[in-house]
Design a protein around this nucleic acid. Structure first.
Length: 328
DNA sequence: CTATTAATAT
DNA sequence: AATATTAATA
């Protein structure tokens, strides 16, 4: 137990690849152009959209970072969204009456971020590396270097993560002595995702860490090898990846999901996954056009992941799934 | 004014 | 339930 404490950070670097090697993390941003092209509607129907047209989960939006007006250079025919049977474009008709006459297209809403175990791991590593003190959203986000990740994303996750930690501490301290039924488990269905990554000891036993060895970096570790974001604007640029690589990732992801979130969208009859990933995508400044040949690969992988789940009353939900650096 | 956290909404 | 968004506060 203690030993781990002593070297937990010795290997963190091992797990966290330097930015130089920072594997092509990927970001998953919807392509505004695509959306616009498709006339993604912004149904101002706050009250339950009708039955059909689930593809219009948009309401209003207002905030931050979305890379510049994504170069429309993506008029590419990569419409391979969902091979739903031919001519399914029918639904793009005029979805949401509002679409016409409004220009919500410009302001696109970002798909929900899906915290994959990998992402979460990066998160935990970053938090651990920073130490509870500095583990604030912004810093974590920077350390994670996951392009596309926003501060709010991290903040939200952090909030939940803290709750999880607390829950664990409570259980640990008070002793699960309860019958077990009411106590709630630290693993299993209660915290599926969180349980998948080991929580650094100091997080659970801050006292012990402080009292004994204090592996907390807190002051050393120059980290932040990340390009650094100066303002609050990221630039996302899509780079075309090798089709093979992308395909592989795709396959991997599917596998992963099958074993990890198998209960989420793996098996449901109406659950489908159409995940795609990008490749290199750090914050770089590039001419606003110059999009690579994009993913016109045979597989049909898009630069972002767009998945709709009709399992929710929310209607269509786009899911953004970032991809981990591949170290794991 | 910006970032963080807590609360709340979807 | 998992994330997002808002509100209040530091």
């Amino acid at each position: 137990m203690r030993e781990e404490d002593s070297n937990w950070f010795a290997r963190w670097e091992d797990e966290l690849p330097p930015p130089e090697e920072l594997m092509p993390l990927s970001q998953t941003l919807i392509t505004p152009d695509l959306a616009i092209a498709f006339d993604i509607p912004s149904p101002h129907t706050p009250t339950a959209p009708p039955t059909a047209t689930p593809t219009t989960p948009n309401h209003h939006l207002h905030h931050h970072q979305q890379p510049q007006p994504q170069p429309p250079s993506n008029p590419s025919p990569s419409h391979q969204q969902q091979p739903s049977s031919g001519g399914d474009f029918a639904d793009s008709g005029d979805l949401g009456s509002g679409a016409a006459g409004e220009e919500p297209a410009r302001t696109l809403k970002r798909p929900r971020l899906v915290w994959t175990p990998q992402l979460h791991k990066r998160f935990v590593d970053a938090v651990a590396h920073l130490g509870i003190k500095n583990a604030v959203p912004k810093t974590i986000m920077q350390l994670m270097s996951v392009d596309g990740l926003t501060r709010e994303n991290v903040a939200s996750h952090l909030q939940k993560y803290r709750l999880y930690l607390k829950r664990m501490q409570g259980l640990s301290a008070a002793g699960p002595g309860g019958g077990g039924a009411g106590g709630g488990g630290s693993d299993a269905a209660t915290d599926h995702l969180f349980a998948s990554s080991p929580v650094p000891a100091h997080f659970l036993h801050p006292a012990a860490a402080a009292a004994g060895g204090r592996p907390n970096s807190e002051h050393f570790l120059p980290f932040v090898p990340v390009p650094a974001m100066h303002h609050q604007q990221h630039h996302h640029q899509m780079a075309a990846a090798a089709a093979g690589a992308a395909a592989m990732q795709h396959a991997q992801l599917q596998q992963q999901f099958h074993r990890q979130a198998a209960g989420h969208f793996g098996s449901p009859p109406n659950g489908h996954f159409e995940h795609a990933f990008l490749s290199r995508q750090q914050q770089q400044q590039q001419p606003q056009n110059q999009q690579q040949p994009f993913n016109r690969m045979g597989g049909g992988v898009s630069g972002y992941v767009e998945d709709m789940e009709s399992a929710n009353a929310s209607g269509g939900r786009k899911v953004l799934t970032l991809f981990p650096t591949g170290d794991d």
